[in-house]
Design a protein around this nucleic acid. Sequence first.
DNA 1: TGCACAAATATTGTATACAATATTCCATTG
DNA 2: CAATGGAATATTGTATACAATATTTGTGCA
Lengths: 240, 240
Amino acid sequence: MNKALFPSKADLRDDAGSTSRSDLVVAGLQRAIFEHKIAPGTKLSEDEVGDIFGVSRTIVRSALQSLAHSQLVTIEKNRGAFIASPSPREAHEVFEARGLIEPRVATMAAKRMTDQSLEILRIHTEDEHAAMHAGDKGKALALSGGFHLKIADIAGHDVFTSFIHSLISRSSLIIALYWRRADTTCESHSHHALMRAFENRDAAAAEEIMRSHIVDLHSGLNLSGPNTPPLSLADALRQD
Amino acid sequence: MNKALFPSKADLRDDAGSTSRSDLVVAGLQRAIFEHKIAPGTKLSEDEVGDIFGVSRTIVRSALQSLAHSQLVTIEKNRGAFIASPSPREAHEVFEARGLIEPRVATMAAKRMTDQSLEILRIHTEDEHAAMHAGDKGKALALSGGFHLKIADIAGHDVFTSFIHSLISRSSLIIALYWRRADTTCESHSHHALMRAFENRDAAAAEEIMRSHIVDLHSGLNLSGPNTPPLSLADALRQD
DNA sequence: TGCACAAATATTGTATACAATATTCCATTG
DNA sequence: CAATGGAATATTGTATACAATATTTGTGCA
């Protein structure tokens, strides 16, 4: 119980390359959710998920708890875990929160923008474009969220970044349930407008574009009647 | 694998009274953190915590993961869990985030304020006052955070509320590390000013008071050199 | 048929045993 | 004496067994 007096081997630990097995399961499920391969409400049986990823229930359980904490999964005592299905109200709140936080983060990103960061964003928008042309709706949607995440990373504010991570994850479920338009062209348009603001290091413009972009997204939801696109679990999680 | 067609007993589940054992451990540790009974950096050995709460490592582990997700605890692979000690930068970010979110929430609370909610807040401020007079620094501090949480509850915006929960928890650690003043009278003063704004249903005033209150808190931090007040674990967690 | 109740089954909750890894302690050596 | 290396110890990571609970199935009865 006595304190260590000298720096130990621990001080030079890398920790970077080591991803825990539970994190792999989290990542797999998250990806499936982001790409709309698993529908909200789907039951996630511990055994089933464990079989698919080849890990024990202990790991699955840990992963599910993690996802539950970020509100992507709902755990009901003695009943199990389900992909969350956000209520219309929750959907509204999530976009309201994004509307407050993301514009602020956009200004911070604009102020810190470097040529290298710009290049990362540019490549990202090209990927978005490509996925949309290829007709891969799920991937395009996931990438579209990824754009917002990259902006948060550039802003370099860890607290806001983690909030945005959480909000964007939940947005993915919300869009699966309530998105009314078929097109995502407004997405692409707004993202390009943001790029121009960033190129000019115009923080005020970036803030305003982001604000109206999120209002657009919010108003693209139909919060009266949810869509219902179910799917099989094993297929959705097939590793590739 | 086939869907249930009929509503089952599950639909009328109460779920309200049942608190899981892991949540009890979380609550116990949280409280100790809020009241500054455990110092940042303290090692939380799974066996030790398990013995104190009388539960197996499985439960403790789950609790620690939960706390890690809300950033109150840091888990290092193969090394264990420690009470988090936020960096000066993190401290700055947390209060920046509070400065963005809480004023907005204060306006929402003002708009939804009822006589009953006012009464709850009034009683709370009295408790704060009492704890401060009694010289119970830890308790006073925990209650002071609680005031902000109650406002969030009244605002009724679950997304913001959960963000604020997280930020206030972290603030508790930050204050333990970086608070420079001995007095918390400014706290009490601001809280009373907020009460007056709420009584008048003056949303704009509430927003402005909250904004400047958080700026005050932020500027009350000494982010160059951390304080270091350690303490024994078993004492801190003694149940009462 | 439709309902109520009980047995059977399946799933989650928890404890524990063992494996993997880190930390501590001690002897050896320069 | 300090530094190094390695055994001994302690702690966390994971799988699994069993207990507790929910769900399903099946049977009898009106």
